[in-house]
């Protein structure tokens, strides 16, 4: 279980996260929803080890990860697929996937996992020697998820994977997230597409200006009037 306790994040003088506590139990999908600037990305980036100026405690299966660097975080089993995909446009699909496996050295298993990614995302297989930058937006998102999965981390954090995709592709992305979860991965999902996220979430937190204002199971929050009016458009 990934546990974040009383997390504070500062950007210069800005106090961006004001004491956030969340729990991501093994095998579950937990989602973090909230408006622009609420602090969703900051939470994930802090867990990933990218933010040094923070307070609080981050533990995974009891081990303290608070002051670990990003490489150590990946090796301990938590990976982040960043906001805006950020695939490497000048590297091929295969190279992007191999980069995701950079922290590993079990070559035979890496080869098997590449095949697994190609089963999960058949379109990537057809494009495996193409440069990442030549893929469509949807394909790039698949590549970003595939790259994160290649780390073999048990916990996959995804920052707005449906951002900027056509409605049909959005559905596909959420189906894939559910499939990844069924295959045993724990998911911490950040989304602005609140309804779709809550539908697949076991548990959810609502973030507003750096603090958690509401939490509950996905079903509870979908039914909640405040969530309905603020995030579900009615």
């Amino acid at each position: 279980m990934l546990k974040v306790q009383d997390l504070h994040v500062y950007y210069g003088g800005i106090h961006a996260l004001k004491g956030i506590s969340i729990e991501v139990p093994k095998g579950k999908v937990v989602t973090l929803i909230g408006c622009n600037g609420a602090g969703k990305s900051s939470t994930l980036r802090a867990v990933a080890g990218l933010i040094k100026n923070k307070k609080g405690r981050i533990t995974y299966n009891g081990a303290d990860l608070t002051s670990r660097d990003p490489v150590e975080i990946v090796k301990s089993g938590i990976v982040m697929s960043p906001e805006g995909r950020r695939i490497f446009p000048h590297l091929t699909v295969i190279e992007n996937l191999r980069l995701g496996a950079y922290s590993r050295s079990d070559e035979p298993q890496i080869l098997k996992d590449i095949e697994w990614i190609f089963e999960l995302f058949p379109k990537l297989k057809d494009r495996k020697d193409q440069k990442g930058g030549t893929l469509s937006g949807g394909e790039q998102q698949m590549l970003a998820l595939g790259r994160a999965l290649m780390s073999a981390a048990e916990v996959v954090m995804m920052d707005e994977p449906s951002l900027g995709l056509a409605p049909m592709l959005v559905k596909e992305v959420f189906d894939i997230i559910a499939a990844i979860n069924r295959q045993g991965k724990t998911v911490l999902l950040v989304e602005q597409n609140a309804f779709a996220a809550l539908k697949i979430a076991d548990y959810a937190y609502v973030l507003e200006v750096g603090a958690i204002v509401l939490e509950g199971t996905g079903a509870q929050l979908i039914a909640d009037d405040r969530v309905k009016s603020a995030y579900l458009g009615g």
């Binding site: 990933a48 080890g49 990218l50 660097d69 990003p70 490489v71 975080i73 990946v74 090796k75 990976v79 982040m80 960043p82 950020r86 490497f88 446009p89 000048h90 590297l91 190279e95 191999r98 980069l99 995701g100 496996a101 950079y102 922290s103 590993r104 790259r147 994160a148 780390s151």
Partner: peptide
């Protein structure tokens, strides 16, 4: 591969290990 990756995006390379 690591060199070519960080020449484009240091932060993403870092979180990929």
């Amino acid at each position: 591969l690591g060199m070519r990756a960080i020449s484009k995006d240091i932060e993403t390379s870092y979180i990929m290990g």
